[in-house]
Write a protein that binds this DNA or RNA. Structure first.
Length: 421
RNA sequence: GGAGGUGUCGCAUAGUUGGUCUAGUGCGCUCGUCUUGAAAACGAGUACGCCGCAAGGCGUCGUGAGUUCGAAUCCCACCACCUCCGCCA
């Protein structure tokens, strides 16, 4: 959400954002609604003021007849007030609905484009893996090593179901433990957050109202989070922090639930696109300055890159184009890992910053040096998702005999250097 | 799941026969006076949001919806916490 004053003063910027993100939203409608809102607000408030003044007089009036007369006068004011309050309520509903749709302004450096196909590579790391034998895909490799079972996964869960088992489990847990150490060493406090989360928290992060069809819902009206970003942003919901506590650097580890409602025909095979998985997620709350946001955005993304580099998997980084940005995102990088069998890079994570878009919705503020409460800035980035990371890991490190060589940094966590039959 | 209790502007509290509560007080905190410095004392200030150039005004007493001319106070629902009973990894 943006500040309505900012929107009114920067109408053209918002229009540009709508265009760049390929959204449909009419800023002028919002401005008209806001003018109605202010006008009605002023009327309602002055009627309330009148009512308060009359009430004060009644309170000290002793004579019963005069009192009665005053009460009757107040009744008239009330009748008027009720009508105007109802008008205001209707306008507020319209206004709030529009406010929730206003996109955040993308950064100047964000390239134009419609979809992920227009994202621009800004960095490539590592040599694309070459083999002296025809490489297998992760499905074949992991099935052979009994690391995963898809058929029974589908029997138990349905479409996109899977069981990780044996070394598939051990390897996942080794990655989690390694990641926990890796990110802890970079100043992140680890969290195991709740994943069943109240509706309002999803509004706070911007996953609602749009995107409800992609969320699992409970019979209590809560939703299952698709990322630890949601509960971690909820952690400080409605709070005023101290400036010297910033930046907050959190590492959330959680199961993630996504219905993948709009992508039934995409990535139907294997572990690329599943409906439940695990992810370690980096979240930062920092002071409300663009340069701080940019600094931490680079830092978060670099953390993920260095994590992948330490595993030795070839990757590239793309900067997302306007059309591939979420409503609240100012700028986003995707990190994509080389998948040898497919001969292409596949996304495993992204790093975004939001300025105060999320914190304004979540009412997360801090008191600055002048004692003024300001909305913090928020950022988040994938640390590492499992089992998706296994796809490129097993494919890049497969050996002639179908065994998997384990990256050195993971060996002490896994307790062995190779996964074989 | 059952029974009862509690929820007030950092913390602790006053306020529950509805009407100067436009929310008092203590502690804490900030600034000032005094002091060589500090403490103490004294004085001032000290929740958040919104409208407004300002003066000023409006709203918020866990949340929401009601009753009333008027609600911290009354009714209803919900939420959180506490005590007891039951159940349970």
């Amino acid at each position: 959400m943006l500040d309505i004053k900012f929107i009114k003063e920067n109408k053209d910027l918002v229009k540009m954002a709508v265009e760049k993100k390929h959204l449909s939203f009419d800023v002028d409608l919002l401005i008209i609604a806001d003018e109605k809102r202010i006008a009605l607000l002023n009327i309602v408030e002055s009627l309330r003021g009148e009512q308060n003044k009359m009430n004060n007089t009644i309170s000290v009036e002793k004579d019963p007849a005069t009192r009665m007369q005053m009460i009757n006068e107040m009744r008239l004011v009330k009748e008027d007030l009720i009508k105007k309050e109802e008008d205001l309520k209707q306008v507020m509903i319209e206004w709030q609905g529009l406010m929730l749709q206003v996109p955040n302004i993308p950064d100047m450096s964000v390239p134009d484009g419609e979809s992920d196909e227009d994202n621009q590579e800004i960095k490539a790391w590592g040599e694309k893996t070459s083999f002296s034998f025809p490489p297998k895909d992760h499905v074949e490799l992991m099935l052979n090593l009994k690391m995963v079972d898809f058929e029974r996964g589908v029997k138990v869960h349905g479409f996109r179901g899977y069981f990780l088992m044996g070394d598939g489990v051990r390897l996942s847990m080794a990655i989690w433990n390694y990641a926990l150490d890796f990110f802890s060493n970079r100043g992140f406090t680890p969290f195991l957050p709740p994943v069943i989360v109240h509706r309002e928290i999803f509004f706070g992060t911007g996953y609602l109202p749009q995107g409800e069809e992609d969320l699992y819902k409970t019979q209590d009206g809560d939703f299952l989070a698709g990322t630890a970003e949601v509960p971690l942003m909820g952690f400080h919901f409605d709070e005023i922090l101290k400036q010297d506590e910033l930046p907050k650097k959190y590492l959330g580890f959680s199961p993630c639930y996504r219905r993948e409602a709009g992508s039934h025909s995409k990535d139907v095979k294997g572990l690329i696109r599943v409906q439940e998985f695990y992810k370690l997620e980096q979240v930062i709350l920092c002071e409300a300055s663009h340069s701080e946001s940019v600094k931490f955005h680079e830092e978060l993304h670099r953390n993920t890159e260095e994590f992948i580099e330490s595993l030795g998997i070839p990757y590239h980084t793309v900067v997302n184009c306007g059309g591939d940005l979420g409503q609240g995102q100012v700028k986003k990088y995707d990190i994509e890992l080389w998948v040898p069998k497919e001969e292409k890079y596949r996304e495993i994570g992204s790093t975004s910053y939001f300025h105060d878009f999320q914190t304004r919705r979540s009412n997360i503020r801090y008191r600055d040096a002048d004692g003024k409460a300001r909305y913090a800035h928020s950022l988040n980035a994938t640390a590492i998702p499992t089992p998706r990371i296994l796809v490129s890991l097993v494919e890049n490190f497969q050996q002639t005999d179908g065994s998997i060589k384990i990256p050195e940094v993971l060996q002490k966590y896994l307790g062995k250097s190779i996964i074989s039959k």
